[in-house]
Design a protein around this nucleic acid. Structure first.
Lengths: 343, 343
DNA sequence: TCGTCTCTCCAAAGCGGTTTGGAAAATTGG
DNA sequence: CCAATTTTCCAAACCGCTTTGGAGAGACGA
């Protein structure tokens, strides 16, 4: 059923039917009712592509998933983020398209996506420090919003981000307040902006209590369970092991907990742990009381906010850049306690 | 830059330019070269919507993410699955669209997606036993393929699935061969088809050694870490606790391990554990040697296969239903050992 | 030299909507 | 009752591409 046959069935012109359905005022209420009823009866839906052609909008937002090779790690937050974003997008009649792109032809794909008119806007995921995609998108002139920020960017751009520096500063300070001085940081990849900022916050808090950072207590890699385990084992084997560890993700934290137990220690007593918690639906930090003390910020909620902001950027192309800072909450769980007295 | 202006620039008709770019033989090699060069020079890309309108194909495949409420759990496999699928889709020029849909208006959304002509085909995720979406899609007449199967379906349909029953039968048998007779099953939600089948396999293997199933050793829920922990604690507190546990996911298995340790027992010695492992990129089962003995089947690979099969279904609308069975491999890790002698 | 084939290329008709610029009909005001 | 509005509807152009049905130009054989 297309507009033409629907109009014929009603004995009206396509114009009138189109207007009736799209809520234009140039059509009487009686006619509008009649048209709407018929549309429902015939299960009529305007063809997306035709509508898009005519209006110049695709009502689709893209999320580009980078992946340099077959074995690239998928970001665990992907599912929840998309869940939050699609829900918000659906409310405004938008769909989300996922495009996978190899590192090397980022440029090409973004340009093509725009030239093809396939999408109205783009969500940029996982920005690195000085991310090259930002100037690229500025150049292309397609609405976009970044999930996170990119240190070192001079040009303005729209973003939604958690205050990673502050949250890790607070977390570290929480530990120093408890008397900890040897604090490990099991961080994400530090060319990623979020990890870069978390490290800054950590360093600032250490500096505030006059502790110099120790390279042996720092590491940076993909945030897996095994990584958390391995690095914790390494740190606990040091002559001067940490009494507390900061973790960049729940998964690493689970590995950290395992390592602590395997060393015959008790988490929260011998070694305190604070982790960042994205509040993933399939990886909850405990049920009633949190297992880990954590800096918590729902990535799902972030997805919804990004989607809404992107839509307003699309609606108003020369809107000033949107900059939306989210604060992580510091929730206290069972994994932290006062620094053990030096024996 | 659109076809018209490109043609004008070249002094050719739109027809010729279109044909030159799409590889039709009615155009001389010299002209084709000239056209292609110009297309590159002007960075011309045919508009997706216009092309779709003209050809009647959208070159988009949808994946519907069900979600009944705000707090619905996102399936942890989502990211890897989409990664595998989009990669395969991209090879054939397809994009993937994610649509979120509330349980209650599944019907409406599928029908609309088809009527709107927004997508050429659909991937159905997470089928339940007797899933109502399958007859619905048959009725609508849109190409689709199911990730998993649906017990109790009479109508034929296309699917790609892991042989869940066999793999859990083998896993259970592996344990009975080691002398285990008290074996717990910490299963996924059993209205989901995969969980239903795994339970069947488990029961079959127990029956083979004459062991009756014990309701106290069975449970079914969303597969979280906390769930694995809680149920393991419960089972280990029984008068007659299990000596082995089967887990439906890595996440639950991690909780199971934690519970075993918290009870002062050793996994692989006091309690054996086998888990299903979807080989998620962010949740690897150990690095060199597997932590858990596991039935392993890459969900990422499954995504790629589903995508390819769906594309062939789209290309050939009256293709016979595709039924592709994947076998999980049983990899032996450090979490299993002979049944401890009854003391 | 002329009809017949190929080779190239093109004008125009869709695909299914939206939107502009009127025109006919109904309403209002004097 | 008639002119001036307002209301209601429509024909046709347009969005950017593909594809059908030729047409013109050389090449070829007779």
């Amino acid at each position: 059923m297309n507009l033409k046959t629907l109009a014929e069935n009603l004995g009206l012109s396509q114009t009138t039917v189109s207007r009736a359905l799209n809520g234009y005022p140039e059509v009487s209420e009686a006619t509008r009712q009649r048209v709407q009823d018929a549309a429902v009866r015939f299960n009529y839906r305007p063809n997306s592509r035709a509508k898009g052609l005519a209006t110049g909008r695709s009502m689709v937002v893209a999320q580009i998933v980078p992946g340099s090779s077959e074995h690239e790690m998928v970001n665990p937050i992907f599912g929840d983020f998309v869940g939050g974003a699609t829900e918000a997008l659906a409310r405004f009649g938008y769909d989300m398209m996922i495009t996978r792109v190899l590192e090397d032809d980022q440029d090409k794909i973004y340009r093509e996506l725009h030239a093809r008119g396939a999408v109205d806007g783009v969500i940029l995921q996982g920005p690195s420090v000085e991310d090259a995609r930002i100037p690229l998108l500025n150049d292309i002139g397609m609405p976009y919003i970044v999930h996170g920020r990119s240190t070192g960017m001079t040009a303005p751009y729209s973003w939604v981000d958690v205050n990673n520096r502050r949250s890790f500063r607070r977390a570290t300070q929480f530990l120093t307040d408890l008397g900890h001085r040897r604090i490990g940081l099991i961080n994400g990849l530090e060319y990623m902006d979020f990890a870069h900022r978390r490290r800054q916050g950590y360093c600032e808090a250490l500096e505030a209590v006059g502790v110099a950072e120790d390279p042996a207590l720092l590491c940076s890699a993909d945030m897996t369970e095994g990584y958390g385990y391995r690095e914790t084992r390494r740190m606990l084997a040091l002559d001067n092991p940490p009494t507390a560890i900061l973790s960049a993700s729940m998964l690493s934290a689970i590995g950290i907990r395992r390592a602590i137990q395997d060393c015959g220690l008790v988490m929260g007593r011998d070694v305190s742990v604070i982790t960042h918690d994205d509040d993933l639906s399939y990886l909850r930090n405990g049920e009633d009381i949190p297992i880990f003390t954590a800096t918590r910020s729902s990535v799902r909620a972030a997805g919804a906010i990004l989607a809404e902001q992107l839509i307003s950027l699309i609606a108003e192309p020369d809107h000033a850049p949107i900059q939306h800072m989210l604060e992580a909450e510091l929730v206290v769980g069972a994994s932290t306690g006062p620094a053990p007295r030096r024996t």
